[in-house]
């Protein structure tokens, strides 16, 4: 807790004070009036939202497809191991894989050029928000697989059969039982996915060399850029703002969980 708390305290303390140690909100108002900072926030929120929704949907689908197979079989092992790698480790390596695929000389880019589609003349670049979102989804889906699999496993086959014997079609079983039962886990996992994408930086760093305008880039620049004096504290203020966003996400997470506790053991 000390190792977590001390840096946090120093961020919060630094953000609210001047170099002389006087309480101030100047750092925050600087960020709010900075167009670059605000657009970075907008980008971060957008990328968090989109990759969370995409990752959650596709990840659940993939997890369900895997679980429908042979329990403990090769597919499950491979997907589970691969998910672990991609979700927790792969930030930098996968950025390079994407550059190799969709970079200006990437394999897919070149292939598409052969069949007459020029991505880059169409305005696409791997260092764009779209490119970043595409790369983020690459670890968001595996993370969703990891987070949602226990919940999917918790769906008992008896429920579907009981529903069937009571006259429910597959669709009404989904609507009245499976989806309500899964919703808390699904929403909770989606929120974590959002937080994950919102805070992620490694992939962006490797993919764009720190040129894309998302909040972590701004923080990094403020701290290491040394362009303008006193930028440090503005970076810290940005950090506090990130924490606030994440805090809201966590509150949402707890609300979903406690709502589910009405009928969850």
């Amino acid at each position: 807790m000390i190792f977590l708390g001390l840096p946090l305290y120093s961020v919060i303390h630094g953000a609210f004070t001047t170099d002389g140690g006087v309480l101030t909100f100047q750092n925050f108002s600087t960020t709010f009036s900075s167009a670059a900072d605000m657009s970075a926030f907008k980008n971060s929120l957008l990328i968090g939202l989109w990759t969370a929704l995409l990752g959650a949907g596709l990840g659940t689908w993939l997890a369900a497809a895997v679980l429908a197979g042979n329990p403990g079989g090769l597919v499950q092992r491979v997907v589970s191991s691969a998910s672990g790698v991609l979700a927790y480790f792969a930030g930098v390596p996968l950025a390079f894989a994407w550059i190799a695929t969709l970079g200006s000389t990437g394999v897919a880019t070149v292939l598409l050029q052969h069949i007459g589609i020029n991505l880059y003349s169409g305005g696409f670049t791997i260092a764009s928000l779209t490119g970043l979102a595409l790369a983020y989804t690459y670890f968001q889906i595996p993370l969703m697989v990891i987070l949602i699999t226990p919940a999917l496993e918790g769906l008992r086959p008896q429920w579907e059969e009981a529903a069937q014997s009571l006259g429910a079609s597959k669709l009404s079983y989904m609507r009245h039982v499976a989806i309500p039962v899964l919703t808390p886990a699904f929403v909770g996992a989606t929120l974590i996915l959002f937080g994950n994408a919102f805070s992620a930086y490694a992939t962006a760093l490797a993919l764009t060399g720190g040129t894309i305008a998302i909040v972590p880039t701004q923080i990094n620049e403020a701290l290491n850029g040394n362009v303008i004096a006193n930028q440090d504290r503005v970076g810290l203020a940005l950090g506090v703002e990130m924490i606030v966003v994440v805090a809201f996400v966590m509150i949402g997470y707890w609300m979903v969980q406690s709502r589910a506790r009405r009928w969850l053991q």
Binding site: R156, Q158, A162, P180
Partner: peptide, 15 residues
């Protein structure tokens, strides 16, 4: 139209 009772845990937990 058959009523089925399972070994256990067949009640819908969300209802």
């Amino acid at each position: 139209d058959m009523g089925m009772v399972f070994q256990a845990y067949s009640l819908f937990p969300n209802m």
